[in-house]
Design a binder for these strands. Structure first.
Lengths: 196, 196
DNA sequence: CGGTTATCTTACTTGCAAGTAAGTAACCTT
DNA sequence: AAGGTTACTTACTTGCAAGTAAGATAACCG
């Protein structure tokens, strides 16, 4: 019937992801998805019976992508500097493209009222990203690429929360605050600004 | 009729503030306020006809408090270190008390769909806080109390967004991430950790 | 070719959020 | 003591979000 059948599910996820990152989980409804795709509300419920199912699918997609990136970086032995650059760049560009918030910023306010399954998925993603960031910072410092004081986990938390906050702040200022914040970290963190 | 008449309005604001900071602007309804105070829904509408009115009142209360604090600090010539400490402490304690998010974290996701009046109030508050933070950092560096590289406005944005993100992250981790992040800044920022 | 399965639509229910209109009781004023 | 004002309550409307049930249609499979 429809031109391409099975990508409806993917289109729903794609649209839902945009909406999640620009409005937060409570800021969009199934209607916002269905009208955008020219389908009916119940079609979205067919693929994702409840909003919990949709949320979990979204978070798992994030998780899978990041696991993939980490595996890639490991296989190609990407330097800590380049890994951190990829993280900064992605955040900057997502803000440019209107996907302003990261998953955590988009879900934080609602977190306590979310179903446990979704909470668990978010927690897993949080640990994954924070673990990666801490390890990358630690490895970069050991390799002489980064300079910072204190523990790597502390610094990871500082940088992660700053990017999260900066993405939200970008919504309110209309400018790309992530770029400003990332540039600050580039300056104070990198010992060898040029290619690594 | 009621024991004390005119403090209903204040109680509404107090409750609404708790709810705003713990759930975000879209995470509570007038019912959450009225049932908590043992009054009817329409009583809340009597004091604040629309949610916009309530939101503006809340933001203006924040703004007034901060203006007052700034004036106090100016009159008593409070050192930049102590001013920054007050900022960190307040954030830490509000998280301890369950008022996890700052106004910006609580409103960011909804910002674009808010009435213009409320957007304007938030923008005013944002400029006030960011201006104060940048000036305090600049003054502290000039006085030799702080050490950091780059512009004061850039550093202010970095610290402000990190605290905002940390407050949200505290919801998701169940621990006080603000304390962790603030401790990191205390270590790398202060040249004279002891009393100023 | 006939039946099953996948992918939808139509049509509905439930529940709550926001807001309004009209009434009431106390109190305050002149 | 009459009339207005303040601070509510009762009772309602509107609208939308979430979800469900049942049917339609097309593709796919043996």
């Amino acid at each position: 019937m429809s031109p391409r059948q099975t990508d409806t599910r993917e289109q729903i996820i794609e649209r839902a992801r945009d909406l999640l990152q620009s409005r937060g989980i409570e800021g969009f409804s199934y209607r916002d998805i269905s009208t955008h795709l020219g389908i009916k509300n119940a079609a979205v419920h067919y693929h994702f019976p409840s909003k919990n199912d949709l949320g979990v699918a979204l978070i798992e997609q994030f998780t899978d992508e990041i696991r993939g990136d980490m595996e890639e970086a490991r296989r190609h032995q990407v330097s800590p500097t380049r890994q951190l650059e990829a993280y900064f760049h992605r955040s900057e560009h997502e803000v440019d493209d209107g996907c302003q918030m990261c998953a955590f910023g988009a879900l934080a306010a609602s977190f306590e009222r979310l179903p446990e399954e979704l909470q668990a998925a978010v927690t897993e993603l949080r640990k994954l990203i924070h673990g990666w960031l801490a390890e990358t910072l630690e490895a970069g410092r050991d390799a002489g690429e980064f300079r910072f004081s204190g523990s790597a986990t502390g610094k990871a938390m500082q940088i992660g929360t700053a990017i999260q906050g900066a993405r939200q702040m970008s919504i309110m200022t209309g400018s790309n605050v992530v770029r400003q914040v990332a540039d600050g970290y580039r300056e104070e963190l990198y010992t060898r600004p040029e290619e690594n």
